[in-house]
């Protein structure tokens, strides 16, 4: 096969550049453990109201024994329930979200919080909010004619003003 010397150099350059990109991705994935939300956990979306975790009175913000925070949400047309939550800054927060109806997606602009919410599967994502403030939590996948209206509010407060709470009670809602 005939390859011009200049083109040969270009090919090496291209391979080197791709190699650098891949090295960066593998480094963050394997050494820093940064992964997109992958979590294969089936759930029956038709009977969330009967589930131990996603029944209506179980939704909201919970403090775990180890001090981290867990948020249990249901995505349903058209909102993320509970519609308003409060969270502390600078603390790892794990969201667990299930859809009660169709496909949704969620992200909180300017943060790392985002995942698809697929009916039949629990979505789980852990993140830390660096800064206090009022954040909208938006649905980002078309879910019906009311998709534009599907959003909820997240208020992130400074760590110092975050109340200590017992693990038995949902807090921050």
């Amino acid at each position: 096969m005939h390859i011009h010397p200049l083109e040969k150099r270009w090919i090496y350059l291209v391979l080197a550049v791709v190699g650098i990109f891949l090295a960066a991705i593998f480094y963050t994935a394997l050494a820093r453990n940064i992964h997109p939300p992958s979590h294969i956990e089936p759930i029956d979306s038709a009977s969330l109201h009967l589930s131990a975790e996603f029944a209506e009175d179980k939704l909201g913000v919970w403090t775990q024994p180890d001090g981290t925070i867990r948020v249990t949400l249901v995505a349903a047309r058209y909102g993320f329930y509970p519609r308003e939550i409060r969270l502390p800054a600078g603390t790892p927060v794990t969201f667990r979200i299930a859809s009660a109806d169709v496909l949704h997606g969620v992200h909180i602009p300017m943060t790392n919080m985002g995942t698809m919410v697929v009916p039949g599967y629990v979505s789980e994502i852990t993140t830390t909010f660096p800064k206090p403030g009022e954040y909208p939590m938006l649905c980002n996948e078309y879910c019906g004619l009311g998709h534009d209206h599907m959003w909820s509010k997240v208020t992130v407060v400074a760590k110092e003003s975050w109340p200590e709470a017992s693990a038995a009670q949902p807090i921050g809602r």
Partner: peptide, 13 residues
């Protein structure tokens, strides 16, 4: 599907 729950991290990578 990077942001989807129903597939594992290994296949995504």
């Amino acid at each position: 599907l990077y942001m989807d729950p129903q597939q594992g991290a290994g296949f995504k990578l």
